[in-house]
Simulated scan of single mutants.
Amino acid sequence: MKDYIEERVLEIAKYILKTNATVREAAKVFGVSKSTVHKDVTERLESINPLIYEDVKKVLEKNKAERHIRGGRATHIKYKAERKDGVSLP
């Protein structure tokens, strides 16, 4: 594996651990796709640093378990904003 890829994998992993970021948030910060972040932290990281891999895996599992809650909140906020603007709901 190329050095720059290993560096990116470790940087993304450290960022996720530090901020409890989702894959989507990490992808935005590092300017790569969600697929790249996911592959970095689920496949490549395990061979680079198994200890960090286990910690990142826990954060990602927590984020996945909470995903439906974040989606529900976003929908609630969206429709609440539409009501304030006077836009009728479908």
Rank of each mutant, 00 (worst) to 15 (best):
A74R: 06
K57Q: 12
T42I: 14
L51E: 14
S35I: 12
R73K: 12
E43V: 13
S35F: 14
V9L: 04
K78C: 09
K64L: 09
L45I: 04
F30G: 00
I5A: 10
Y4D: 08
N63H: 07
V37Y: 03
S88E: 13
K34P: 05
I69W: 05
S33N: 08
P50T: 11
R44N: 09
R73H: 07
A74G: 07
E7S: 02
G31Y: 05
D85Q: 14
A81S: 13
E66W: 04
E46A: 12
Y15L: 02
G31A: 10
R83C: 12
E43R: 14
K18N: 13
E11Q: 03
V32E: 01
R83S: 14
V9S: 03
N63P: 06
T75Q: 13
K84N: 13
I5E: 09
T75N: 12
E46F: 11
R44Q: 10
H76N: 11
S33H: 10
R8Y: 05
V32N: 05
R67Q: 13
I12P: 04
E25T: 02
I16F: 01
K18R: 14
E43K: 14
V87L: 09
L60S: 01
V32D: 02
V56E: 03
E66H: 07
V32A: 05
A74H: 06
V32M: 04
L51A: 15
R44L: 07
K78Q: 12
P50R: 15
T36P: 05
Y15A: 02
V87S: 03
N63W: 03
A81G: 09
I16E: 00
T19C: 05
V32K: 03
A27H: 05
A13N: 02
A81T: 12
V9D: 01
